[in-house]
Design a protein around this nucleic acid. Structure first.
Length: 733
DNA sequence: TGGTCGCCTG
DNA sequence: CAGGCGACCA
């Protein structure tokens, strides 16, 4: 065996084995058949060799060859996919979060108590929470939370990890508010995290498994965390806004309280004997007391404010307590001014009490609305990092658009539809090698830890959130943001019952692969480059004579510019999908040497350019290569086994040779290979056999003659293959 | 010179 | 399966 096998590979010098046969569509119909010799006897004489016999005789393959087995597998896979689908229910939406928070607030409860009880810890705790968000994504990059102003933020997501404190006058107040807000934020985030985790995983997994759009865009950057960072930044902006609003509320509240206080306790600038949870512990009092200089006091005050902000009910209580205090003070004052008449004093107290109640009510309402606002703001974030908001990210937007153009080709009626037929097989369902270079790039998000659970495609907010609404103008590529990396591989196992979606997805995967490679020099420069081209040049190049590099670049650009309008209803794709590959393989059963025109005819759903054409040609070239290698291998095997005449060789459906070929071109065995292919294979095998036996293989170009023969044996391609959906038709039976 | 093909390699 | 390359043809 080794003797022949060794000669199989090396030919010192490259020989042009180009057969130079003009390939035309209606290729020769080779007069079928000459030999029908089935040499079962021979097989017996040699005995069953493990993988030795290239010939005829059925081993056990016939059993597994049954038609039933093939489709069952597919059905199973589809079922599994459906079950995944079921699992990924749409998120309840933001309202639930709001309600949850509200009810939580109303409960005045448990968690709140525990939280405020922790006093100083609270702020630390909230810091931790806040840090949580960042740390998962950016810790290894650099400590983004370090307050050092020098810590560079990634442009264009210019956003400090923690919002800087505005240098406003009531400094203490500001700090208190800030801390309080962070604590609140932490709670909200907890809730959100808890919700969004349900099907998913740990934060880092979520980040990786559900990478939004720009994951592709920045494949070249030190990225992977950027989208998350972006989310954090956006959130922080929101929070700053929310903080400002709350601060305003708080100041307003302070004013009113001050008024109340002044009305009530004009005379009594009472001292430290006041109960410490008095609402009056605001800046005014602080001024009086802080010369005692303890921060404990400030902390306690802070805690009080936090509490009160947290809980309108509690606030009311405090307000009442205040009123009582004031009443007491009034009482004291009355004792001093007894002569002035009790009646008057009572009236005053009465009005004050009414005023206080009114004030409390007002404050309560304001607090409620403020809280609702805050909660809605926080909770209206889509479950996954929106990759773009608006202005500051428009360049990113463009870049993403440029780098994911392939999705532009994908015709997806609606964002939801893109998930309808979605199946999420596990990584093991990837059975075929992928075209282009997808797997070669580490940056490819498909390179996930295999131990991770299968990625669940999360619905992008089914109910458009404010933010997602802002995505309304987003290009098709953003239609299914996270789908790309997530759905990376799996579709070719689902040729059935799926119309365009899988193919579209596959396309995206593939073109992304191409893009990845093409743009590997990429980064921002790449992006802008393409942006420029997008604006200025049509997909077709003006027939200039670019060098190879330009051609490559063009390929990338053409991919990039893939810009079929999602509304056009056209199904023309700019890239070749795994389904196209599968189709090409099936076509190989009929034609080993398809012409370019033929390819264009039969891949009519692909927008042809030089890249696509050569890729298709390359595919068939690779198919041939494998085919001929098998032929040579089995021919040599037969010779080794003592076969002396080519008539001893035949290729049947159960032969090892056919099995090998079928595994390659028809892995799922869901296509019935035409008989003609068996004949051609047999002829090829015999040609190789003859040549080797004749010792022609000493000639470096000895295969050329064989190729010349084989290229004439192409059959006519069935019309079915002209249909873009031919796979469904072909594989269904 | 562009289009192919096949070989080799990764 | 894709890239690179040399070879060949029109």
């Amino acid at each position: 065996m080794p003797d022949h096998a060794s000669s199989l590979s090396r030919q010192t010098k490259r020989r042009r084995v180009d057969i130079g046969v003009k390939r035309t569509l209606g290729s020769v119909v080779f007069s079928r058949a000459r030999e029908n010799l089935l040499l079962n006897a021979m097989n017996q004489s040699h005995g069953p060799k493990q993988d030795g016999d290239c010939s005829l005789v059925p081993h056990s393959y016939g059993g597994s060859n049954g038609d039933g087995a093939k489709s069952n597998v597919l059905r199973k896979l589809l079922k599994r996919a459906n079950s995944y689908e079921d699992a990924m229910m749409p998120f309840p939406g933001t309202t639930i979060i709001s309600q949850l928070l509200k009810s939580n607030m109303g409960k005045n409860g448990d968690r709140e108590g525990g939280f405020q009880g922790s006093g100083g810890l609270s702020s630390a705790g909230s810091d931790l929470q806040a840090e949580d968000v960042c740390s998962n994504s950016s810790r290894d990059r650099e400590s983004p939370l370090s307050p050092s102003p020098s810590s560079p933020c990634l442009p264009p997501f210019v956003c400090p990890p923690l919002p800087p404190h505005p240098p406003l006058t009531p400094l203490d107040l500001e700090r208190l508010t800030d801390e309080h807000l962070r604590a609140k934020r932490a709670r909200v985030e907890n809730i959100i995290r808890g919700m969004s985790h349900s099907p998913c995983v740990a934060p880092e997994n979520r980040e990786r498994d559900c990478p939004p759009l720009e994951n592709k865009r920045k494949q070249r950057l030190p990225q992977q965390q950027q989208s998350f960072t972006q989310l954090v930044c956006v959130r922080q902006e929101k929070r700053q806004e929310e903080r400002r609003q709350l601060k305003l509320q708080l100041e307003d509240m302070q004013k009113q309280l001050r008024q109340l206080q002044e009305k009530g306790g004009r005379g009594g600038e009472e001292d430290g004997n006041q109960s410490e949870d008095s609402v009056r512990s605001d800046g005014l009092e602080d001024r009086h007391r802080d010369h005692h200089g303890n921060h404990n006091r400030a902390n306690r005050i802070h805690g009080d404010l936090s509490e009160l902000l947290d809980d309108p009910g509690l606030f009311l209580e405090r307000a009442r307590a205040l009123l009582r205090e004031q009443a007491l003070l009034d009482g004291e004052r009355e004792e001093d001014e007894r002569e002035e008449g009790e009646r008057e004093g009572r009236e005053e107290r009465g009005t004050m009490r009414a005023e206080g109640r009114q004030l409390a009510e007002t404050l309560k309402q304001e607090l409620n609305s403020a809280m609702s606002q805050v909660v809605d703001t926080v909770a209206s974030f889509p479950p996954f990092p929106p990759s773009l908001t608006t202005d500051s990210q428009s360049p990113i937007f463009h870049s993403a658009n440029q780098r994911l153009p392939c999705f532009g080709d994908v015709i997806i009626p609606s964002p939801l539809d893109s998930f309808v037929g979605l199946s999420v097989p596990t990584a093991s369902d990837q059975t075929e090698a992928l075209p282009l270079v997808v797997r070669k790039t580490n940056a490819n998000p498909q390179h996930r830890n295999p131990s991770l659970p299968p990625p669940y495609p999360h619905h992008p907010s089914l109910h458009p959130s404010p933010l997602s609404a802002s995505l309304g103008f987003s290009p098709p590529s953003f239609r299914h943001p996270f789908s790309l990396p997530l759905m990376g591989y799996p579709f070719q196992s689902f040729p059935k019952d799926q119309r365009s979606p899988p193919e579209s997805m596959d396309l995206s995967r593939e073109t992304v692969g191409l893009r990845t490679k093409m743009g590997s020099g990429g980064g921002i420069h790449f992006v802008s480059h393409h942006h420029h081209h997008r604006q200025s040049t049509p997909p077709q190049h003006g027939g200039g004579s670019e060098g190879l590099s330009l051609i490559k670049s063009e390929c990338g650009e053409l991919q990039d510019m893939a810009d079929i309008s999602p509304y056009s209803g056209s199904t023309i794709q700019e890239g070749l999908s795994p389904n196209h590959l599968k189709k090409a393989k099936l076509m190989f059963f009929y034609s080993r040497y398809p012409s370019s025109n033929m390819l264009k005819t039969f891949f009519s759903d692909v927008k042809f350019n030089r890249c696509i054409t050569s890729q298709l040609i390359k595919w068939f070239s690779n198919f041939r290569e494998f085919y001929y290698i098998q032929m040579e291998k089995f021919a040599r095997q037969a010779i080794n086994e003592g076969v002396t005449t080519n008539e001893d060789l035949s290729v049947g459906r159960e032969s090892e040779l056919f099995r090998a070929l079928n595994m390659h071109y028809n892995k799922a065995n869901d296509f019935e290979v035409p008989e003609r292919f068996l004949e051609v294979a047999q002829i090829t095998l015999r040609e190789f056999f003859n040549a080797i036996v004749a010792g022609k293989d000493v000639d470096p170009s000895w295969k050329k003659a064989i190729y010349k023969v084989i290229c004439k044996l192409d059959s006519e391609m069935p019309e079915v293959f002209k249909s873009p959906n031919c796979l469904q038709d072909l594989l269904h039976e």
